[in-house]
């Protein structure tokens, strides 16, 4: 497979599009304190492709441009996803890769929801944590195994 810089940009763009489309398909659950986002399954992609880091970052920005709380989500939500995706790539050979989006989203999304709208902190940590775990383990993990078999 070709691996030029342009290819990486193109791939990142298509991963971003995929993230945004999945958020738009499941609009009713993807935003706010419930935050059940099937699109988050893609957060484990940096395990296989480093260019997915930028793709996920851009995808979150676009999804939050259409849905979410506007600028607050665009700025904070996407930065959290960027760090989580980077850690997933950095620790791609260990289970931390899967833990990173779960923990960072639960801890930090709750933090800004708490500081802006005073949502009970621990309640939202638990709720985001559970839905993120479900998506990462039940969708993300099988996706990675499937891609390992079918793309290489």
């Amino acid at each position: 497979m070709r691996q030029s810089r342009t290819t990486k940009i193109a791939r990142a763009g298509l991963i971003a599009a995929l993230y945004a489309v999945l958020c738009l398909i499941f609009t009713s659950t993807s935003f706010g304190v419930i935050q059940f986002r099937p699109a988050e399954a893609l957060t484990v992609l940096p395990i296989l492709f480093p260019e997915a880091i930028g793709g996920i970052f851009a995808g979150v920005i676009i999804a939050n441009m259409f849905g979410g709380l506007g600028l607050i989500d665009i700025v904070f939500g996407s930065l959290i996803s960027l760090v989580a995706a980077y850690l997933t790539w950095r620790f791609r050979h260990s289970f931390i890769a899967y833990l990173s989006p779960i923990i960072l989203n639960a801890v930090f999304v709750s933090l800004y929801l708490h500081s802006f709208f005073r949502y009970p902190y621990w309640l939202s940590v638990v709720s985001i944590g559970i839905s993120e775990t479900a998506v990462v383990l039940l969708l993300g993990y099988p996706l990675i195994s499937y891609l390992k078999k079918n793309l290489h």
């Binding site: 940009i9 193109a10 791939r11 991963i15 039940l138 499937y146 793309l151």
Partner: peptide, 26 residues
Amino acid sequence: LKPLTSIIAPLFIKAFQRADDLALAM
């Protein structure tokens, strides 16, 4: 959740094929 893999995986594979064509076109 489970059947969603059957949506995401083919979408992803298609996206990847397109990415290579797109890069070439660019």
